[in-house]
Design a protein around this nucleic acid. Structure first.
Lengths: 233, 233
DNA sequence: CCTTCTTTTTAATCTACCTTAAAGATCTAC
DNA sequence: GTAGATCTTTAAGGTAGATTAAAAAGAAGG
């Protein structure tokens, strides 16, 4: 009799026991297939092929197909949350609300486009999940959304946002612009830096008062690129 | 023996023969299911339920499940193309590039959120289609994209765009912001007008030079709402 | 090398769904 | 009102894919 799923550890690259690494490989494979085939189209045999093992082996690590897919879905956002949070907290304490939004835009975009299987899986399938799977995903999504709610609210309190914007709609438009990037970006057709710069500019000018947008731009020229690469305090 | 699929007519509401209306009902039902269940999850029995008939009846109108889904996919964008084109050509000849973008934003958004089954179906499933189905869809998508390519290019030629933007990335960001609206907009949580206004403002300020953005805003205050509601010349 | 625990595989079951076949129902025009 | 066309249904067939059972293969330790 197989023991329970081996202690799931490191959400990071690897490093765990062999068993933990196999589990992670299956999860990655599932994200890969899920992003391309959709919830209903994700076959365990395809996941198994991608992970280089036989379909029934998956049951040693996950109780069912649904559990596997559920974990891919919420894991994707949960990791994004961690990443963006880390980047934001690595910013200098005096970074203004618009600089923080710039940093969040860059962090979201880079993470999304680097770890694109998970992100694309989440983005494309969020609306197609059965209720039971959606619960945990929605919770993580709300948590992540709160980051942005706060980013926008802070800019608003500081009087940096244009008054003709509906905050919720504005926030969702920004997230839409960012999320959609996974659908069209192709490393061969333009550098990631270009995408990030364009996104930051659109978001900054899209949200801020003209005066604030220009101020932030010049301020960012020295501050933001540094902040963007910082990971750990 | 059944004749060939009855002459497919009116892409509009209805009006055609009874047969044409049944066909349209099936197509609508397929869009409904496709948007919620995804490509692989779209079962003919569900489509049939939604269209209030039995699954095999679908085969009287469509050669196969794939053909049905393919048609939903490309039809969605093709109609969007027609709609946006109509709105743009109804604009006064002296409408500037930014006004035209404003109008396109409104047209895209209103159509998307009103006919949301087709749009959501396209958006969510574009990346999950098998090759053969994707061909026609991609062709229509490119055609529609050309509208926006031109809108942005015209604004650029007129010197109204900020120079720090990559045109392709900027265009895709805008489309992403718009497309994503179908994922979050809820009529009960905010009016469509609010969403449209916010989107127009973000796009205008997101793309244009600060000077041009402000100019366009005041000009639009009289011109654009009228143009927005115009349908036929 | 033999035992035990972990991991992976092969073989078999069971269900869901697309599709076809054939028969019914409805409609139209003489 | 009845022949023929149009449309719709009921009744199978066949296949693919999740899951379970049971056996095989590794790995760790003595």
């Amino acid at each position: 009799m197989p023991g329970k799923p081996p202690s799931k550890d490191a959400p990071e690259g690897n490093g765990g026991s062999k068993s933990a690494r196999t589990r992670e490989r299956i999860l990655d494979a599932a994200a890969h297939v899920l992003s391309r085939k959709g919830y209903a189209g994700t076959r365990l045999t395809d996941v198994a092929d991608q992970a280089v093992l036989q379909a029934p082996a998956i049951y040693y690590y996950f109780p069912s197909r649904e559990d596997l897919i559920e974990e891919v879905m919420w894991t994707g956002i949960a990791r994004m949350y961690t990443h963006v949070t880390d980047v934001l907290s690595a910013l200098p304490a005096d970074a203004g609300p618009l600089s923080r939004i710039d940093a969040a835009v860059a962090a979201h975009l880079r993470y999304e486009l680097e770890i694109s299987d998970y992100t694309t899986a989440s983005i494309r399938n969020a609306g197609q999940l059965p209720e039971n799977i959606r619960v945990r995903y929605s919770a993580e999504a709300t948590k992540y959304g709160d980051i942005w709610r706060k980013l926008v609210a802070d800019a608003g309190s500081a009087g940096l946002l244009r008054s003709d914007l509906d905050p919720r709609a504005a926030r969702m438009m920004v997230l839409g612009a960012l999320n959609w990037a996974a659908e069209w970006w192709n490393p061969r057709r333009g550098s990631l830096d270009t995408v990030v710069r364009t996104a930051q500019s659109i978001v900054r000018h899209g949200l801020a008062t003209p005066q604030a947008a220009e101020d932030a731009k010049t301020a960012a020229a020295t501050r933001q690129p540094r902040a963007d690469k910082a990971r750990l305090p």
